[in-house]
Design a protein around this nucleic acid. Structure first.
Lengths: 341, 341
DNA sequence: CTGAAAGCGCTTACAG
DNA sequence: CTGAAAGCGCTTACAG
């Protein structure tokens, strides 16, 4: 099928080693030799077989990024950023989506395909601590995302509590007093929803108010449909909120859809803040205020971390695992544009 | 580093071949031998090195899917569908995004990384016919997407003209008479925008009307921002449209945002139809009518096609390249919900 | 049913 | 500065 090193060597009248030297830009090659080899390469249309190279070197130049769902714009945007960041290290990203299934997340973390990849960036949702502790050392792994774990792995995650606090404080500053939280969970306290709910609670408390737990609505998932349903459920209760802090932008957008259907105005009747800053939030009938994580920043941090881990593989004293907090900021748009008396 | 076949063979007291036979579920192995080998595998935690296997077999089980932009929900949704379809053939998808740059599209089509992948599904935008003709035979490639080419490759693409015709006819059926088209191109007639524009023209003509070219607005790209700008531009002209057919949902959503800003109602003042059926279109203040391509269908078709090409590689008489048209349907939502007198 | 040998295409010490 | 040999971890004919 293909043209091999040997063919080129034969044609150029040199050894395979010399061709290899040329291909890999080895410094010490006579210009004349280099030129001769290069010509043979061009004439034969030779291209190195990466599989063979990788077998030899023990590296493939491939890393896996495993995210819950490509259909979620936030993860799609993050994936794009990771692909770009990886390209700067000459790494190619193999994208997996786990569909938010614990089984698939375990499979990935256990090193499914590990002999093909140099490293793994995993963004887990359902995975448990013990799953992570049971995984083999290889390939190196970096966690990315808002689910908290107490495990010896590098983890890139935003300060969810702090970010939520700022979002809710923003709503309180607008004069809102009944701020709902959409997208709570019943499970583990380390879920991002719990962290953001804690921020909600802290912001309200530190404003001298009492958190009203009837303003907290749980959802099945975090999609637009979940947000729409949760908002409907909330509006059917006695007390009507005057503001909503949603787990993420999708939930917020779904909630706004329900508000339109019920004839309520945003932000006049109910102000809304989301989380993620997906592009879609800027173009609705009412643009969405939101917490914007530094996506390209966190992608870069995750890739850099992984690259270090890969380099340190097999070392006696690998660097201690660290938790890194990328930046974020609050973006104020129309959905919270009106201050109340 | 890892445990190799040889280690297992040594421990089980058999040859490497026998271990290989067990690992690959070769039929003719004594149950006793199989058991002994299996135990050695378990005890040693052996996992086959795929790179080595691939080098030997000439296949990697990897295919590349190259799309213009992961941030575009349509492509993200299609990518998810392709990943699922590929998994059914035990193929893993390596996702590339070309950022809609001709240079990157050429790179991918020329077989960048071709020694790692078994095949390629390419969704080009800027690529030209000559770029495609210049590419090497290997790896096999299948085109996916709405840019038309006259080249000997399998191509999965929707009947854009027909789909556009149906969308515009729907608007005409609602009694609209000034139907604008947002998202035209100045370039090649084979661009999907041209195909959809042709459908627009045909629908109007066959309704006994005369296409008004002042109702056609070109855009830089196909994002929400482009749609918003195009709509603004259109509204600043003399004649106001009473309906809009947008190149895609993103352009339509951007246009609707502008309509809100200008105080115009959808669909009362202006009805809107998009193309792609991205989930976001269902959850705006006004849900968006759209042409819905059968995404999982087209993903499956593309993967099946590629699998056949890979199998036929090196054959004397490979099957003739074919153009396959996946299905689509018109989805009517609120943005076209009102019939006019 | 199992084994010993060769080889996929490259790179890495080791010579010279 | 360049070459000859060995080997990465597997599978594929070929024997037996």
């Amino acid at each position: 099928m293909g043209v091999s090193l040997k063919d080129v060597a034969l044609r150029a009248g040199v050894s395979a080693k010399t061709v290899s030297n040329v291909v890999n830009d080895y410094p010490h090659v006579t210009p004349r030799t280099r030129q001769r080899v290069q010509r043979a390469i061009d004439e034969l249309g030779y291209r190195p077989n990466l599989t063979a190279r990788h077998l030899r070197k023990g590296r493939t130049g491939l890393i896996t990024l495993a995210i819950p769902e490509l259909g979620n714009p936030y993860f799609a945007e993050v994936a794009g950023a990771v692909i770009d960041a990886a390209a700067r290290h000459d790494l190619t990203v193999l994208l997996d989506h786990t569909a938010g299934l614990r089984e698939k997340e375990i499979l990935v973390s256990q090193g499914f395909r590990s002999h093909v990849i140099d490293g793994l960036i995993l963004s887990p949702i359902r995975l448990e601590r013990e799953d992570l502790l049971a995984r083999p050392e290889d390939p190196p792994m970096v966690l990315l995302g808002e689910r908290e774990y107490d495990v010896p792995y590098d983890h890139i995650m935003i300060d969810n509590v702090g970010a939520a606090r700022i979002a809710v404080r923003h709503l309180l500053d607008l004069g809102r007093r009944r701020v709902a939280f959409l997208g709570a969970r019943r499970e583990s306290a380390r879920q991002p929803a719990h962290l953001r709910l804690r921020g909600w609670r802290e912001a309200i408390t530190s404003a001298g108010l009492v958190p009203d737990e009837s303003m907290v609505v749980a959802t099945e998932g975090y999609d637009r449909a979940d947000g729409a349903a949760a908002m409907a459920c909330l509006l059917d209760r006695d007390k009507r909120p005057d503001a909503v802090f949603a787990y993420n932008d999708l939930v917020a957008l779904g909630a706004m859809r329900t508000l339109v259907e019920r004839g309520l105005r945003v932000p006049e009747d109910i102000a809304v803040v989301g989380f993620d800053d997906i592009e879609e939030g800027r173009y609705g009938a009412v643009s969405l205020s939101t917490v914007a994580p530094d996506k390209s920043g966190l992608a870069r941090l995750a890739v850099d971390c992984l690259v270090e881990r890969i380099a340190a593989r097999g070392e006696d004293t690998p660097p201690a695992p660290q938790r890194i907090l990328p930046g974020y900021r609050l973006i104020v748009r129309e959905s919270t544009a009106i201050r109340r008396a």
